[in-house]
């Protein structure tokens, strides 16, 4: 088993929004800085959505409206963009998100048995969250670790060479 941890933007825990006003101000400042990276203001949309997602944990209707207001992109446009991409969270997910690759290189190394394991052990299917909110499962296309297949991300950590022998041990680290 191999693991690669990444501290890069761990999302704020769900329900962390204590003080809506100060969060709004933070997002406003953040987007103001991000806008400087692009020659046209609307191009800030993807980074702005990420910033909102990091702040609020997921992108609610309210968050999308706020992003629309702060970027000047119309609400319909924002909706169109956010639904195009698969890694924006448009509904709350569990405390830990398992991104399991089942594409061909992982499939031939047994990713389908891991998918079955998650189903049998945690009643998890693609897109679902466990009742206790501990895990969500997102089935991925290739995540670029095919030489260490099967591979998955849990939150921002990469896990390689997963097998029936070690998957439980890996997931035990995520509470």
């Amino acid at each position: 088993m191999d693991t690669m941890r990444c501290a890069a933007d761990t999302p704020a825990p769900l329900g962390a929004a204590k003080d809506g006003a100060s969060e709004s101000a933070m997002l406003k400042d953040k987007i103001k800085v991000l806008k400087k990276l692009y020659p046209h203001a609307r191009s800030v949309l993807l980074p702005a959505l990420y910033a909102a997602q990091q702040l609020y944990g997921w992108l609610s209707e309210d968050a999308l409206e706020e992003v629309s207001r702060l970027t000047g992109v119309s609400p319909a446009e924002v909706k169109g963009v956010v639904t195009f991409y698969s890694l924006f969270k448009t509904r709350p997910l569990g405390r830990n998100v398992i991104y399991l690759c089942t594409n061909v290189a992982c499939l031939i190394m047994g990713a389908d048995t891991l998918e079955d394991f998650l189903h049998n052990t945690y009643s998890l299917s693609n897109g679902e969250t466990t009742a206790d909110g501990r895990f969500s499962l997102v089935i991925m296309e290739c995540i670029g670790a095919c030489d260490k297949a099967p591979a998955m991300l849990v939150n921002d950590d990469c896990h390689f060479n997963i097998s029936m022998d070690n998957i439980r041990e890996i997931l035990d680290n995520y509470k």
Partner: peptide, 9 residues
């Protein structure tokens, strides 16, 4: 994103 590719990584 091409499945099987991990060389740019």
């Amino acid at each position: 994103g091409e499945p099987g590719t991990f060389k740019d990584r």
